[in-house]
Nucleic acid binder design. Structure first.
Lengths: 195, 195
DNA sequence: ACCTGAACACCGTTCAAGT
DNA sequence: ACCTGAACACCGTTCAAGT
């Protein structure tokens, strides 16, 4: 992990390598651990070298966030009933997010992801709603409410200690938080069904 | 705004002044504008001087966030029906948050506020739920779901442009987002009522 | 106890210069 | 086109030294 190249010599870095290093740092050290300089160290290049493959740090973050959504277990819109499909899709998203608590604040800061994976999941949600005859504005509203609740819930559920001082003794357990999330999700789905 | 004091001379700074300066910076320049060094500049003191009145930046942030909640229009738990009361309390919170979009990401990052104002609002929510006979774990679950949804919704609704590149042309209007929030809130309340 | 000055260990980003 | 070296304009926090 040392820069042993003179100006003009190439390091063989690619955009994919930069993103992979970013994901690794984010998973291992959380949002605070993802810095351009740390990525550069990880790849044994000068900090400025990254800007040949990525425009800004925000672009790098967006890429990493969308990548993670590929792990979400998406149902076949035609295979399941709409409510069970949405329930499964949101709980799977919630799970994936909780497996990487360090990333969740970034999902909120960037207001979700906008890459191909996020788009694909959004289309599946709309397809599920459409089988119930929910389309257009009501469908977009339902989608928004479900996303807001799921990501928001993950942000509040993530057990990353905020401050050592805070007495997490009386904090709800992960299991309680999970059933708490599922309850609210059912309430939302019931509301969407009756809208 | 210049430091014209020698070591040993006092500047007359107080904890309240530090917090007020922090709030001003946060409202005017958003989360990125709130730095310890900017607060120090604002008060015309050396950066290190702040640490005589505040332990860390996080403590300063928590103070500012809780302060803002004093603006929330809280109903009398006995004066209104529980559902209308909670509806009003959450929409008021949502409004206050949207008036200061720069702070919302910090509410998420710090998972809400924990000061006296936040505690007071929480107790009002529990009192409203209690009039419906909802107490104990179900009450805490309902409170959590409402908070997660309201703060999460504010985070996603805040119209602070994330990237100039993003085409906000097809983004929903503030009015649409507001009714979107209110719909989801009604769904949650309906679910809580039937639980 | 409160504050300055200076330091420590960091940031993101830009850019001339090299091949 | 890709990379280094160096810089620019920042961060939060600590701490000896002054009154």
């Amino acid at each position: 992990v040392e820069a042993s190249r003179r100006p003009g010599q190439r390091a063989g870095i690619t955009r994919e390598l930069v993103i992979a290093a970013g994901r690794e740092l984010l998973i291992e050290h959380g949002a605070a651990g993802l810095t351009m300089r740390a990525v550069a160290r990880h790849l044994a290049v000068a900090p400025g070298a990254l800007y040949s493959h990525v425009r800004t740090k925000a672009e790098l973050i967006d890429e990493v966030l969308d990548d993670l959504l590929s792990q979400v277990d998406a149902p076949d819109p035609l295979g399941t009933d709409w409510r069970g499909g949405l329930y499964g899709l949101m709980t799977s998203t919630h799970e994936v997010l909780l497996e990487h608590p360090g990333l969740v604040p970034l999902y909120v800061a960037r207001r979700g992801a906008r890459g191909p994976n996020a788009q694909r999941l959004g289309e599946i949600m709309l397809a599920l709603l459409a089988t119930q005859g929910i389309t257009g504005t009501p469908a977009r509203e339902a989608l928004r409410a479900l996303l807001v609740y799921t990501i928001g819930s993950a942000a509040f559920t993530a057990q990353t200690p905020i401050d050592p001082e805070l007495d997490d003794a009386q904090l709800p357990s992960p299991a309680e938080l999970e059933t708490n999330f599922e309850n609210g999700l059912r309430w939302l789905l019931a509301g969407i069904a009756s809208a």
